[in-house]
Design a protein around this nucleic acid. Structure first.
Lengths: 246, 246
DNA sequence: GTCTGTGAAACTTTTCACAGCT
DNA sequence: AGCTGTGAAAAGTTTCACAGAC
């Protein structure tokens, strides 16, 4: 998964620093939390406050940020705007990113209308489907194109990321065409493991798998295999919550 | 994240074995792949074949399965049906699980209609929303209930898992009510880190965060920080793909 | 010969604890 | 006094390689 690696002890050879995958995944959460603070007019946050809002612990947060450099002020905290900018740049969000969404069924339509995408810098540049009943219609103000024109659409405009909400059976084939056309980032919602060359980053979101993981934990509890501290604080008023965040 | 832990060297104290979180997450993928093999009438699979279909490597697969016991046959492989049953039982899918879906907006409606849930043993037992325009309507054959009746609905039937597709601003409050009502497994699609006591398992799916992680990798490539072996096999025919799976 | 099961090694990630700056 | 930045230790995960069953 990691992109670059330093040979131990050598200084950063080419660019800045190596950022662990686990850290990258959390940066997005910090950014979300920072936006919240900015909206409230808060201009400085401590690692404790930011970690609480982002659902991490402050030691992890500080270590994560240390990979980006030393931008905090000891005894004070982090400047919200500076940190927002720093993380945005690190995630490559300075430039808005164009997304093509393939598969405009139930889930695809929901994704097309998902406000969280545009509000966080992602523009859906094209909708594509194979169903001729849907091709030509407009969804959320965008025309649905035919899957046959996939290569034309990709050639006509710069596309950074493809989102797949297609039936499992056709998803690998579409993935292959995307890869051939030069797409290197894919977010796949179809319940199938995609094969792609290593220079292509594929992320899988499997909704049923998430439920199965929860089911496992329920099962553990049912069998009395759950260790201690259940029911903890269950009756405390919300103001006294001191629970962990997801 | 782990539920139980053995003190080093001591035998399994209470039940069977400790299953690492990383393994649990992959079991769902193996199950999906096994279903595929069963549909094709295949009755035995090797770790290599199953790993390829599930997007893992065979060493990981074998290690994962070893946590569940030794059910493979050396020189042959695994029996598809036996393994399917074993994983299903491990994930607690023997009993069908009831899900309550809260928030029937864009995304919530898509989730309500998502075939992958019912086909994999999850039954949506109730839909709930706060919007009076939606309350009382029927979506995918299910009546939408008022959020005010949340506690009544949970009391009237056994619910294993709550799925939240609500606006971020109200999600923590709903989470608190769910926890008070005894729900211990939550799948959250709202872009906010939920606070919950430690006996409650919360899984977060943040769609925009997924795109941001992809954006990071795109950014790395743009800056020439990507290491070697690009373009590899890009022109091979699909039949000769030997790429890694997601 | 083939393929599983598993210890041991390598690597990654998290946690701890505290030095050092404001 | 308060909070960051970071080495060092601990925990968790993946990879390796091969003994052993079929």
């Amino acid at each position: 998964m990691s992109i670059r690696r330093e040979t131990a002890g050598s200084g950063a050879a080419i660019g800045e620093a190596v950022i662990p995958d686990a850290t990258v995944a959390r940066l997005a959460n910090y950014l979300r939390a920072l936006t919240g603070f900015a909206d409230q007019g808060v201009s400085t946050v401590s690692s404790d406050a930011l970690a609480a809002a982002a659902g991490a612990n402050s030691a992890v947060l500080r270590k994560d940020l240390s990979y980006l450099g030393s931008y905090g002020i000891r005894g004070v905290g982090y400047d919200v705007d500076t940190l927002t900018l720093l993380i945005s740049r690190t995630l490559g969000l300075a430039a808005h990113r164009s997304v093509v969404l393939i598969g405009v069924g139930n889930l695809g339509q929901a994704l097309a209308g998902y406000a969280g995408f545009s509000s966080r810098g992602f523009e859906i540049a094209a909708l594509i489907d194979a169903d001729q009943q849907r091709v030509g219609t407009h969804i959320c103000g965008l025309r649905v194109h035919d899957i046959g024109d996939l290569e034309l659409i990709l050639a006509a405009q710069p596309i950074d990321i493809a989102v797949l909400a297609t039936p499992a059976a056709v998803t690998q084939e579409i993935c292959d065409r995307l890869v051939s056309a030069g797409v290197t980032s894919i977010l796949n919602f179809a319940p199938i493991a995609l094969a792609a060359p290593s220079h292509v980053e594929v992320r899988q979101v499997d909704l049923a798998a998430e439920l199965q993981i929860l089911s496992f934990h329920e099962h553990q509890k049912e069998n009395g295999l759950y260790n201690a501290e259940q029911e903890k604080a269950k009756t405390l008023p919300p103001s006294e919550r001191h629970w962990a965040r997801a």
